[in-house]
Nucleic acid binder design. Structure first.
Length: 579
RNA sequence: GCGUUCGUAGCUCAGCUGGAUAGAGCGACGGACUUCGAAUCCGUAGGUCGCAGGUUCGACUCCUGUCGGACGCACCA
């Protein structure tokens, strides 16, 4: 790249003296559509106007100039193809470089976010019911993005803001008071969060027989706010059940948090800042006594920040929480992983924080994601069409185990139930991640269970196949034992293509981190799996008569496996050595 | 009504800061298991990138309009 820039600079000097030429890192590089055309492509269209020459003409001139640079031939060959200057890299040195990079610690990781602190808030469940499919999308996005940002050198803090107060919590409490008879989750043999969820559903049913039950719930909320002992105690007990059950689901699916915030601790936090803003004239007091902010000049509406009785609302709390977070852990970025239905809320929130004068408010980011729909339509709590997270994983695990048994591979996998669960998580997480976050997506249970095609298990299978080859090699099965790895042995187009795919891994992470989009890594993983799959079919590794080639290809398989493992970790897809 | 967002093959999705013949998977059809695990691979068919303008040497990608879907527009969270 530096060579191309050098050649370009010379061309600029010759044609338009004094005009600055683009620097190496400003050059547009792309991958030619056909590998035979080269490994890197530099389009010359942009140069045409400045140099007052046709792009093809410029490419041709650069080809000659690159050839004249002595060091160039060691790095590769440049060739003009129409308006493009294509570069074919010298393969052996590049292969050696890539294989060495894979072997060095932290393969794939970058430094684009070194020294940055990023807070990621995600999951944020209510404590009145267990996690459902929508949470699973949220959780895997949050966890995966956190890992990707960390891989680029950021110091990441994962935060879970638990909604443990409010009218919805009172509803499950009320149902329990009426019908629970003091039973515990153990009594009913239920996972504790499911137990709580059962009473939330029951509340809905109770509405049919007692129509003033909504008012009773409201009354319960008042008692809660007044701090009535009995109410608070029941609240604590039920929250404990809900949260501990939810935490089991996190553990099961490989999610974790550095910090748990509880809304019951934070819900009054913002009031002080609203009063300050009022004093500064940023907010105003409406005729009815409520405090509001007028955001109409930026295309948003008026928004109430404190009720007329002086109590705080949702957004007030978020203002307080954001400020408190930045005070206790100053960060360069805060990412809220929250469903797209709250886009407006976050726009308003960020704007208010800006008006309060917080410079860091411009580094707040709402990672908005679309709804997960079912083939049958939208999930609705009231209609019982919600897909429960634990139930779903149970079902996926069961089917994975059945698949292993159908293939007669119980002995090879060892821990049957454990591997089944890991396949289930791979299927689920890949499915949820492959779609760009902004889009609503369709969750098709049957497709995700089929384990065919563009799926997590396919990726896991390819990783397992790579492991399998390495396992055999370690047992001394193969001609590689008499050979020596030599990068030059991998110069064939087939081997080279796979090397190039492996080499693209760090770039995928960097792009994913820059765009806060883990689907880039998920899609990379699929490309790698596909390339590896095609490659190993036609290119024998251990059975190769050429011992050096066998040893070299084994190195490549080791690199592929390491890349699988690293990329899978970033996307919460469990890596398996056998399945 | 206003705002945000999505609209690519029958279905589910990719398509890098605009660039060289728009790619996968599923489904359909046809092939490949005495050979490193066939949860695999190879091939065929299938697209005026919602529509209409505009910017540009060049637009699936940017802008405007329009149609269609989703979501939001609470002193709920």
């Amino acid at each position: 790249m530096a060579i191309v820039a050098q050649a370009l600079a010379a061309e600029f000097e010759a044609r338009v003296p004094g005009q600055p030429a683009p620097k190496a890192d400003e050059l547009v590089v792309e991958t030619p559509p056909d590998p035979a055309m080269g490994d890197l492509g530099f389009p010359m269209f942009a140069m045409a106007k400045v140099l007052r020459a046709g792009p093809a003409q410029i490419a041709k001139a650069l080809e000659a100039r690159v050839a004249a640079i002595p060091e160039a031939s060691a790095l590769g060959q440049a060739k003009a193809v129409g308006p493009y200057l294509n570069v074919s890299l010298a393969r052996a040195p590049e292969i050696a470089r890539v294989l060495a990079a894979v072997r060095s610690p932290g393969w794939g990781q970058g430094t684009s976010l070194a020294g940055k602190r990023v807070m990621v808030e995600f999951s944020s469940p209510n404590t009145n019911k267990p996690l459902h499919l929508g949470h699973l999308r949220n959780n895997v996005l949050g966890e995966s993005v956190s890992r990707i940002l960390a891989a680029e050198g950021a110091e990441v803090r994962k935060v879970n803001h638990i909604n443990d107060r409010g009218i919805h919590i009172c509803k499950s409490m009320l149902a329990y008071m009426k019908k629970g008879e003091g039973r515990t989750p153990e009594d009913e043999g239920l996972k504790s969060d499911h137990f709580v969820g059962k009473y939330y559903v029951l509340f809905g049913e109770l509405k049919a027989e007692a129509k003033d039950i909504e008012a009773e719930a409201q009354e319960l909320l008042v008692q809660w706010e007044a701090g009535e002992t009995a109410v608070r105690e029941l609240w604590k007990r039920m929250n404990e059940w809900a949260v501990s059950g939810i935490k089991k689901t996190y553990a099961r699916t490989g999610k974790g948090f550095d910090l748990y915030d509880y809304e019951s601790d934070t819900y009054e936090l913002g009031r002080r800042f609203v009063h300050e803003g009022l004093a500064k004239g940023i907010f105003f007091k409406a005729e009815d006594g409520s405090v509001q902010v007028d955001l109409e000049d930026v295309g948003l509406d008026k928004k109430v920040l404190l009720r007329k009785d002086g109590t705080s609302i949702y957004i007030t709390q978020d203002i307080g929480t954001a400020i408190e977070r930045h005070e206790s852990w100053p960060h360069d970025k805060l990412i809220y992983v929250v469903a797209s239905e709250q886009q407006y809320h976050f726009k308003v929130l960020f704007e208010i924080l800006k008006r309060l004068g917080f410079e860091w408010a411009r580094d707040l980011h709402h990672l908005s994601y679309g709804l997960v729909n079912l083939p049958s339509g939208r999930m609705k709590t009231r209609e019982g069409t919600v897909v429960d997270a634990d139930d779903l994983i149970d079902e996926l695990s069961r089917l994975a185990v059945a698949e292993i048994e159908a293939k007669g591979r119980e002995d090879s996998v060892g821990d049957l139930a454990g591997v089944g669960e890991k396949i289930a998580l791979g299927a689920l997480h890949y499915y949820l991640l492959q779609t760009a976050p902004a889009k609503d997506m369709l969750y098709d249970p049957e497709a995700s269970l089929s384990f065919n095609g563009d799926t997590g298990p396919y990726i896991q299978y390819m990783g397992a196949r790579a492991s399998s080859i390495i396992r055999k090699a370690n047992k001394g099965e193969g001609t590689h034992v008499n050979g020596t790895p030599r990068p030059a042995k991998l110069e064939s187009d087939a081997d080279w293509a796979l090397v190039r795919r492996v080499a693209a891994f760090p770039g995928a992470i960097e792009a994913a981190a820059a765009k806060v989009d883990s689907s880039i890594v998920a899609n990379y993983l699929h490309d790698l799996a596909q390339d590896f799959s095609t490659w190993y079919r036609d290119n024998p590794v251990l059975a190769n008569p050429d011992a050096d080639l066998a040893a070299s290809r084994l190195e490549l398989v080791i690199a592929v496996r390491a890349t699988f493992a690293a990329a899978a970790r970033l996307t919460c897809i469990p890596f398996l050595d056998a399945m």
